[in-house]
């Protein structure tokens, strides 16, 4: 132990002495090199290899940082920019002003009416559509977050075949090839479908291929809610929370929610939320 400490102290002393050697003349430098080689052979090897020691390196680094800083501040001229106008401005568009589109957003099979703000064709914000009964102009975290989904790089913008981009013609050709072989085992994976049009199309497709199967899956589905509703009412059903005018009709009524968050109970929709927001709420 003592041995090690002594060695360490010796090394430090050597280092201190070496750093005090002057380096002004070639003779002094040669003397320094010899001392370095004798005491710290590893650092001497580095100095020989790069022709530069720590001192010179730090000196040069400092100087180059200073020069770079000064240089950068003197070339602060803004980069030249381009203006790229339309070839033909879309008729309703005024560049520089937002355009709003009414649309719907489907989440867990429930559609919510939304208004999408766009700037030069790029969507920037989703909000509830005040004229749509499912949102009444309100918004939800899902709605606010949906704008990111539109820019999700994982989002497919085209038909894909085994992960590679393909076209609808490829798809139709593939489908036509399948219809000849009658027992094609087609599996169609979708989210919950509540659109009558899409449902009819899917049914037509399944009817074309007797072995085809339709699989619906949501990462966070409403299967349990549906099961509960079906158990309660015998036929298949999904409960919908409607809280309009509870106070005026039933002044004595209080709403208590256990486990389920009433306002967001039907996840995609906001119709319970807006009247809820107007009511006095007491946190659980």
């Amino acid at each position: 132990m003592m041995q090690e400490i002594r060695q360490q102290t010796d090394a430090n002393a050597v280092h201190r002495d070496l750093t005090r050697l002057p380096l002004d003349t070639p003779a002094q430098q040669a003397e320094f090199d010899a001392a370095l080689q004798a005491n710290l052979p590893r650092e001497a090897a580095v100095r020989r290899q790069y022709g530069m020691d720590r001192r010179t390196f730090l000196k040069l680094m400092g100087a180059s940082l200073a020069v770079a800083g000064f240089g950068a501040s003197c070339t602060a001229r803004p980069p030249e920019e381009k203006i790229i106008p339309y070839v033909q401005v879309p008729e309703v568009m005024v560049p520089g002003r937002p355009l709003f589109f009414a649309s719907t957003m489907v989440l867990g099979g429930v559609a919510t009416g939304v208004v999408i703000e766009t700037h030069q064709g790029r969507p920037t914000r989703l909000d509830g559509n005040a004229e749509h009964p499912a949102s009444l102009g309100g918004s939800s975290p899902y709605l606010q977050g949906a704008i990111l989904e539109l820019y999700n790089p994982e989002r497919s913008t085209t038909v894909r075949r085994n992960g590679a981009p393909a076209s609808w013609d490829d798809f139709r050709a593939e489908l036509a090839g399948l219809s000849s072989a009658n027992n094609a085992n087609i599996r169609i994976l979708t989210e919950t479908v509540t659109s009558p049009t899409l449902a009819a199309q899917l049914v037509a497709l399944v009817e074309m291929f007797p072995n085809a199967r339709l699989v619906q899956y949501d990462p966070v589905g409403r299967d349990n809610v549906r099961a509960g509703g079906s158990w309660l009412l015998i036929r298949k059903s999904t409960p919908i929370t409607v809280l309009t005018k509870p106070k005026s009709s039933f002044p004595w009524m209080r709403i208590s929610s256990l486990v389920c968050r009433v306002a967001c109970a039907t996840r995609g929709t906001l119709w319970p939320a807006t009247p809820c927001a107007k009511m006095q709420t007491r946190p659980a």
Partner: peptide
């Protein structure tokens, strides 16, 4: 064209 209606003065389109 948009100088009176928009934040952006507007550069004419090719048309």
């Amino acid at each position: 064209a948009t100088a009176e209606q928009s934040s952006y003065g507007g550069i004419p389109d090719t048309h």
